[in-house]
């Protein structure tokens, strides 16, 4: 491609800086709101130290709150357990779809079926899940949330992992078969290590999806099993929206998926388009 002239280059950098500034501003605003005193949050000041004196009082108070700590640990438990189950079951299915041919229902149709599960709006399931969990006496437990989150992230894992496994040359698995390895050994000793990059990426994206999930957490928990997103949503009911605490909770919730997202750049496009676009 042709080289841009210096002036064009400067213009490019300026536009880039502008885009970044606009897109990062909401995060900046949350951060400075979280270090303001309640009065300052309504004054609308922009620059710490210059316009207002920053304080860590909101953070210490929020982190000292047992409700927040419980919600954080609940969210962590649900995300990690769901992701673990999804990776175990999902990689097995993906390996099977990638290395064997199915006849009655073709591989491609099974993939599309998994895909169609991703497409369904979750709100469709809140009534039946509520009834199901009520009859199993699982309402307001972490088990219910794990069960449901696995159901909705599993198809994603199967679709993406399948592609990672496809990338493994068949010569390798054939050679192992000749040497007398069982399919279990091939999966465990050859396929998984070779697809570990994809596995980590899928794990991270699943973790973020479960962590961010809101509608089921809202409809299936009210006290014991409150997750972070539900905790934020309950913030306003007591005394109007308290900007300073909300900012802390928002940051506590947002930071985990955002930080881990920094590590999955390579598989992001493929993951987000459910494998339809190779990035």
């Amino acid at each position: 491609m042709r080289k841009p002239k210096p002036l064009q280059k400067v213009r490019r950098y300026l536009i880039t800086a502008l885009i970044l500034a606009i897109f990062c501003f909401p995060l900046y605003w949350a951060i400075i709101n979280s270090i303001k005193t309640p009065l300052d949050t309504f004054a609308g000041s922009w620059i710490p130290f210059l316009q207002f004196k920053p304080t860590v009082a909101n953070w210490t108070e929020e982190l000292g709150n047992w409700e927040t700590r419980r919600a954080l640990s609940n969210s962590a438990i649900v995300s990690v357990c769901s992701t673990g189950i999804v990776l175990c079951i999902g990689t097995l299915a993906a390996f099977s779809l990638a290395s064997f041919k199915f006849h009655k229902m073709k591989n491609q149709d099974i993939t599309i079926w998994f895909l169609s599960q991703r497409v369904m709006p979750p709100v469709v399931f809140i009534v039946p899940f509520f009834m199901l969990m009520r009859s199993l006496k699982l309402i307001d437990t972490l088990y219910a949330l794990i069960l449901i989150n696995v159901t909705f992230t599993l198809p994603f894992a199967v679709i993406i992992m399948q592609e990672s496994f496809r990338g493994i040359p068949t010569e390798l698995t054939d050679a192992a078969l000749v040497d007398g390895a069982s399919y279990g050994q091939i999966f465990y000793k050859i396929a998984l290590p070779l697809a570990s990059g994809g596995l980590i990426a899928v794990g991270i994206i699943c973790l973020a999806m479960v962590w961010n999930e809101f509608i089921f957490a809202l409809s299936l928990s009210y006290d014991q099993a409150t997750l972070m997103p539900v905790l934020i949503a309950g913030a306003e009911h007591t005394r109007g929206v308290q900007f300073w605490y909300v900012a802390v909770r928002v940051l506590l919730t947002i930071s985990l998926p955002m930080i881990i997202a920094l590590f999955v750049q390579r598989y992001l496009v493929r993951g987000l388009t459910l494998g339809a676009v190779k990035g």
Partner: peptide, 25 residues
Amino acid sequence: FRTLITLPLFATPVAVGYLGITLFY
């Protein structure tokens, strides 16, 4: 740039809504 701009994608949507309340105040 690519890394930074993907951040909103992973932001918890509920949290974004509450962030919105403070931004659009």
